[in-house]
C-alpha cells in the first residue's frame, strides 16, 4: 500500500508574513495536517502576527506592488504601475477572497477557529509582540500562548518545522 517511509506525526508551521497570501498557506497546511490526523502548531511572528491580532485579522490584504507573479483576471501579467493605482490592492484582495470562498476556504478568523476546534494550537511570538508593542489582550481569544523562540522549539520537538 503506502510507502515504507515514516509518516509525519507533527508539524509546526511558522507564519511570518501578514498579507492574505502570506497567511493562507500556513493555515491550509495546518488544517490539512489535522485532517490527516497530524498534530499541528501554528506560530505567528513578525508581520504574520496581524493574522491573530483581533482588530486586524479580518482586514488582511493582498500586496499588488512588488509581486512579479501578480496577474490580471484574464491572465496577463499586471504591469507594476497598475498595482500602484489607488483601490487596486482592495480589488485584488476582494478577488482573492471571492475565489477562496468558491473553493470553500474560510475567512482567516473562521479558519483559525476551525484549526483550533480540530485540536491545532495557535501561538504568538514574544519578540515580535514586543517589537510591535502588542499585548496578549490585543490578540484573538483563540491564541493559546505567547512563546519565546526557545519555547517554540520545545513545542515543535519531534516534529517537522515549516517556515512560510
Amino acid at each position: 500500500m503506502a510507502d515504507q517511509q515514516e509518516e509525519i506525526k507533527k508539524v509546526s508551521i511558522i507564519v511570518s508574513r501578514g498579507s492574505l497570501d502570506g497567511v493562507y498557506p500556513g493555515l491550509i497546511l495546518a488544517n490539512g495536517a489535522r485532517m490527516e490526523g497530524i498534530e499541528a502548531n501554528l506560530f505567528f511572528t513578525f508581520f504574520g502576527l496581524d493574522a491573530i491580532v483581533d482588530k486586524r485579522m479580518d482586514k488582511l490584504s493582498i500586496v499588488t506592488v512588488g509581486n512579479a507573479a501578480m496577474r490580471l483576471p484574464w491572465g496577463q501579467k499586471m504591469p507594476t504601475w497598475l498595482g500602484t493605482i489607488p483601490g487596486m490592492a482592495a480589488f485584488a484582495t476582494w478577488m482573492m477572497k471571492k475565489e477562496m470562498e468558491k473553493l470553500d476556504v474560510p475567512p482567516v478568523r473562521e479558519f483559525l477557529q476551525m484549526i483550533k476546534d480540530s485540536g491545532g494550537e495557535i501561538y504568538a511570538c514574544k519578540l515580535a509582540m514586543d517589537m510591535f508593542h502588542l499585548k496578549k489582550e490585543d490578540l484573538w481569544e483563540g491564541v493559546s500562548e505567547v512563546l519565546t523562540v526557545g519555547e517554540f522549539y520545545q513545542k515543535a520537538a519531534g516534529g517537522t518545522v515549516l517556515f512560510t
Binding site: R34, Q113, M114, D117, S118, G119
Partner: peptide
C-alpha cells in the same frame, strides 16, 4: 449539524 470539535 455536527461541529468541528465533535467531528474530530
Amino acid at each position: 449539524g455536527v461541529d468541528t470539535k465533535e467531528l474530530y
